[in-house]
Each structure stands twice: as C-alpha cells, then as structure tokens.
Design a protein around this nucleic acid. Structure first.
Lengths: 190, 190
DNA sequence: GTCTATAAATGGATAGAC
DNA sequence: GTCTATCCATTTATAGAC
C-alpha cells in the first residue's frame, strides 16, 4: 500500500531531482523543501523519505548535474575523429552548442553556482574540474592552444550568467574558429 | 547623542557593505543580518537603520561591487595608450591581474553570482553587462578579435569559480598573448 | 544614531498514521 | 511508500528605549 499508482520510487526520486533543479534555478538555493516537494507532486514528508536532508538532496542534485554535463561531452565525441584534440572538440561542442534540449545544459552552469553554496558541493565540483582538466591536458594539443580554446569556451558558456548577449553571429563564428584551431594548432603557436 | 565616537554614518554604511561582502562570500546569500551586523560592529537594529531591508542591503552591495569592477577597469586604462583596443586591454588587465589588493576583485565574481539570486540584482547586472559590451564594441577592434579576447578573459576569470587551477604559467602566457592580439588583430583575422 | 526586545513568519526535520 | 501534524530553530522586521 501507499505506492502511488504508476510511479516507482526511482521515478519519484527523478521527479524530485528535476523539481529541485527547477526550483533552485528559479528561487536560488533557498528554495524550500515544501516548494520542491509540491513541484514534484509529493509532500515534504515524501521528499524527506527519499533524501535524508536538504543538504543530501542538494548534493545528489549536484552529482546529477555534473554527470549530465559529462554525458553531453561523451555524446559530443566524434567516433570517426581520432586526431589530437578530439576530447577538446567534444568539450567545445558540449559547452557551446544547444544540441537537443541542451539549453538546459547552458542553464545548469547558473544552477551549479547556486549549489556550490554548499561546501560539500564545492569540493565535488573542484574534484570534477580537476579530473576534466587532466583529461583535456592529455588530449594531445599544445598547452598554449588548449588554454586559449578552453578559456574562450568557458567564457562564452559563462556569458549567460551575466545576462550578456549570446548566440550572436560573432559567437557562432568564434565557436567554429576554436574548433578549427584545435585541428590546426600551428595557427596560434606560430 | 547616539553617534558612536569616531564613526560617521557613511563610515558605518561602508563597514556594513564590507561586512556583508565578507559574510556572503563565506556563507552564501543566506548569511543572516545578525551575522553581518555583528561583523561590522553594529547591532541588527543598527543595520536596519541604514538599509531598509535585506534585499535593499544586497542590492546596494551589488551596485558597490559593479562600481568597484568598473573603477578597476578605469584604473587599468593606460593614459599613454590611444590605439584601438585600449579599453579592451584595460578590461583584460582588470579581469586577470591581481593588481594592488585586487585579489578581492577576482573573488567578487563569486560574490556577484551569489547576489544574483535576487532578481533585482540580476537585472542590474544585465544592464551593466550591456553597457560594458557596448563600450567594448566601440573600442575599435574587429568584432571577431574582440569576441575571442573577451571570451578568453571571461573564461580565465571565471575559472576560480569551479576551483580550477589559475595563475599557472600557461594562464600568464595566455594573458600576455591576448594583450598582444589586441595590438595586432591581423594575427587572428588573417 | 544605535540598541534591546519581541513579534511574525518560515524552514528543516521528526513521529507516527495510513 | 507517502502523508499529516507538529516541534524547534532561525530569521526578518518592527517598536520603542536610550
């Protein structure tokens, strides 16, 4: 008894994580458990059954978001591309192209900054960034070119944070130019 | 009566804004008024005398931070430099060099993201970014070069947000390279 | 101009019913 | 497996003393 027809515990958990993401995006990290729970169609008590505390919920949400970004990098890997810089190209595409419904991926940057209010999340994100940096460093590009390309991609993907204009022709051209540079690093090194 | 010896109302206001900045950096946007007030050496009641509400305090703090960043750009303007790109170079220096005690300027990025939880602050920051973008667009550099250089500077200055490594040799080299590019835009345009 | 005391609201978490 | 009811801590904001 008690099981709501048509929703498994995993479904409920998924719904709660999604609701938490929406609520935090909209209201910031202080979105209340009550708000999140109602948004997911459960009660506050129901939420607490699935996540032991608010901190626990936020930490799991952070894990979920970081995993989603990594998944979008993996999805952007071109199997036919075996040249140096293939991971870097996937990173650029994942960070800058609104592929699929990945407008969400862009927004998740703003979300992560909210989640990082929690020290445990900050540490998780730091470790994740370190892992990614190491992988990129081993991607076969000259360090100077890698630094430029990653910085530019990060800068463009952060722009929405400030409400700056994005998806302008200049930005699209720049994205292409960065991808081109990873294939011809000598253009920058020379 | 009542006036605490040796501190004018403006001094108190300044102390409260500084304390709020410290508290929000340390504890996030949910730092309590009580905390902030004690840190500034006033009572909660004293704080509320100077700022009508917490939202008011946060909004004024955001104005203060944006003005400080603009001031550091102005300070980085080279009077002897009259070539196209002089404002862009000042922007790069302000965003990337820890001049003076401007380690605070770097940290203020993380602070602003916290403050943007407040919709009024988000709007303020958006308008400020728009103003800055317009000024940079009128700086005389080819749009493609401007887009690259600003994106790369933004990306490097955002890196600490993720706890990523910063001030590495590669970053210092990249900063110099970006400044160089603003003086020789044909290197990228060609 | 600043403080104390307190009101009023909200949020996180627990206990136990169903 | 989920909900209701409730407790307790925290927080913003007010009222009024000094």
């Amino acid at each position: 008894m008690g099981r709501t027809a048509g929703r498994t515990p995993d479904d409920t958990r998924r719904a709660l994580l999604d609701a938490a993401a929406d609520a935090v995006r909209a209201r910031g990290i202080h979105a209340s458990l009550d708000e999140i729970a109602r948004f997911a169609g459960v009660s506050k008590g129901g939420l607490i059954y699935h996540f032991a505390s608010k901190d626990d919920l936020i930490l799991e949400l952070a894990r979920d978001q970081l995993a989603a970004f990594q998944a979008s990098i993996d999805a952007a890997l071109d199997p036919a591309d075996t040249s140096p810089g293939r991971l870097t190209r996937a990173y650029i595409r994942a960070a800058l192209t609104p592929a699929g419904d990945d407008a969400a991926v862009r927004q998740s940057i703003a979300l992560i900054t909210q989640l990082m209010t929690l020290p445990a999340v900050a540490e998780l994100a730091r470790a994740d960034a370190e892992r990614l940096d190491a992988a990129l460093a081993a991607d076969g590009l000259p360090p100077d070119v890698l630094a430029l390309v990653v910085a530019a991609a990060d800068g463009m993907s952060c722009a929405p944070l400030w409400g700056a204009a994005t998806r302008t022709p200049a930005h699209r051209r720049l994205t292409e130019r960065l991808l081109h540079l990873t294939r011809h690093p000598e253009l920058w090194e020379s």
